[in-house]
Design a binder for these strands. Structure first.
Ligand SMILES: [Zn+2]
Ligand SMILES: [Zn+2]
Ligand SMILES: [Zn+2]
Ligand SMILES: [Zn+2]
Lengths: 162, 162
DNA sequence: TAGAAACCCTTGAGTGACTACAGAGTCAAG
DNA sequence: CTTGACTCTGTAGTCACTCAAGGGTTTCTA
């Protein structure tokens, strides 16, 4: 199959597939006479695995480790389990941060019940005061804004059935 | 004061200040004879405001809007309130996503109680199956991994008192 | 007063995980 | 034989910074 069909089957977009190839996550595929990439069932499996991991917010490096173990079935999976535990920790950590954020933001929001002159807006006032020195933890979980770039993951995962 | 002192006072690093200037968030400051940037109290205020907003995970574009209202005290602050409401929504949305993620990850984790051959690891198996087509929502809240780049925000905010 | 250390300058590249585009080539249907 | 859908490579852009090279300036100290 060509790249477009692989993309459809795995709920990915074509550029992402080429990106994964460049990045070493997908093996370099055979080429047709016309220089088109040619894929088989194994590629669908592997790409689907990657996308599933990505939908669980793993990094490509985390995924690389998992792929290694998929390809070395005789090795002990203790590292897989550890990786997952650590990643669950990453998610939990970020959730805590976001909870604290939500609390602060709601506090702030209450400072301006209804619209008035910006000069007396409780929100702007609140933002002008010192930060509560909340325990900043160093998780590797990212910020609060998902941009166009990331939305394709959600889009890609709709209606894919491997 | 010079850029280093501003950085100290606002809990930022120097490169970030120059970046904000390039990006139009901070006004172009006066220069000394030796071509050093010279700042005053207003810069400290403005930069602290920006950093406080960033610590609440707002985007620079969201912050630009807030800065506009800080500079137009006679305007009505309804947009400020709306912006904050929307941003609270961003955070809440991401928290829901992460809760769903955590659930899926914990399910997955239970599939491999203790280490064994990778060939029979319940986690790798689970990741090889179809995705639960969970309701993917299009928030703008980002992923699960915070990298070195972002950690400075936490670091920067420690012990700053404007 | 010399020289070292600390600070500052600009420019350009790198981060993660992609997306988007330009300009070209390939292929199947009508 | 043309149209249109698909594919190719290569490059640049996203966000909010961070880092480094290779210089200049200021300040402290011997
Ligand atoms: Zn992780
Ligand atoms: Zn208000
Ligand atoms: Zn927001
Ligand atoms: Zn296992």
């Amino acid at each position: 199959m060509k790249i477009g069909e692989l993309a459809r089957l795995a709920g990915t977009n074509v550029e992402t597939i080429r990106y994964y190839e460049r990045d070493g996550l997908l093996p370099v595929p055979a080429r047709s006479e016309g220089n088109y990439r040619i894929y088989g069932e194994t590629h669908v499996q592997r790409l689907s695995f990657i996308r599933r991991c990505r939908s669980l917010d793993m990094t490509l490096d985390e995924i690389r480790v998992l792929l290694h173990f998929k390809e070395s079935p005789q090795e002990n999976c203790a590292d897989v389990n550890r990786l997952l535990d650590r990643h669950i920790g990453h998610v939990a950590q970020r959730m805590q941060e976001l909870q604290e954020l939500e609390r602060q933001l709601k506090d702030l929001r209450e400072r301006c019940g209804e619209a008035r002159e910006a000069a007396h807006c409780g929100i702007l006032d609140g933002l002008s005061q010192a930060i509560v020195p909340g325990g900043e933890t160093a998780s590797h979980v990212q910020g609060t804004h998902r941009h166009a770039a990331n939305r394709s993951l959600a889009k890609g995962n709709q209606g894919n059935q491997v």
